[in-house]
Design a protein around this nucleic acid. Structure first.
Lengths: 106, 106
DNA sequence: ACATTATATTGATGATTATCGATATGTCAA
DNA sequence: TTGACATATCGATAATCATCAATATAATGT
């Protein structure tokens, strides 16, 4: 039933997941890296659960290396979803805010 | 505990609220207008509840007129929150996507 | 004052979700 | 193949949340 933008919103609608997203921003981190960075706030199974939700929403990308799985934030997906939000719910601002030729710096 | 962006995300993280937001976009609607537009999906107290969540998140603006309360979508707030999301979670795209001088068309 | 209309609030209930301990799966090294 | 390590999955529990019926609040007209 939930549309794409609801799935996106639910993925970021949690305090712990937003903290995780900040850590994943511009960094590839293993699950245990994230657990450590959260400093005892949540246990490993919970972190895996959150990472799965982010991955399912397309906001996290995974790369396996040995026994570890490294996650990073998908900035392009984040940008796309925000663009969709503005197009849908702020049409008067869309034309000036969203540059369709946007290309990432790095 | 929840930060501004979590409050924003939670507000839009519901199917019914996104439908309501679409109706409120560019329109001033009374509570019963919204109830009618949802066509029996939810009852009046539920609509009031959703509208309160949107208002608390700054996404809906209210204007009282007689016994009716008219709500509309706050496009500026929507744009601001999306800009914050991109600044925070897609910094590599922020510079090209967000135009700080953006002014609404209407 | 009273009745009517519009909306908000309350209290209860069911559904969803975040969390954890325990355990399974998968990978690598010896 | 066995053991150690990293992560995922399962099952249970507690918290959050969407929903509604009933009722309260508020504004208007008679």
């Amino acid at each position: 039933m939930d549309g794409q933008l609801v799935v996106f919103a639910k993925a970021i609608a949690d305090d712990t997941r937003q903290i995780i997203l900040k850590h994943l921003c511009c960094n590839w981190l293993s699950v245990s890296d994230v657990v450590d960075l959260l400093g005892g706030k949540v246990k490993q199974p919970t972190v895996s659960h959150h990472l799965k939700i982010l991955e399912d929403a397309g906001l996290a990308t995974v790369r396996q290396e040995g026994r570890q799985r490294f996650y990073t934030l998908n900035q392009e997906r984040m940008t796309y979803c925000c663009g969709q939000l503005i197009s849908t719910y702020a049409p008067d601002y869309a034309q000036q805010v969203i540059n369709p030729d946007a290309i990432p710096i790095k």
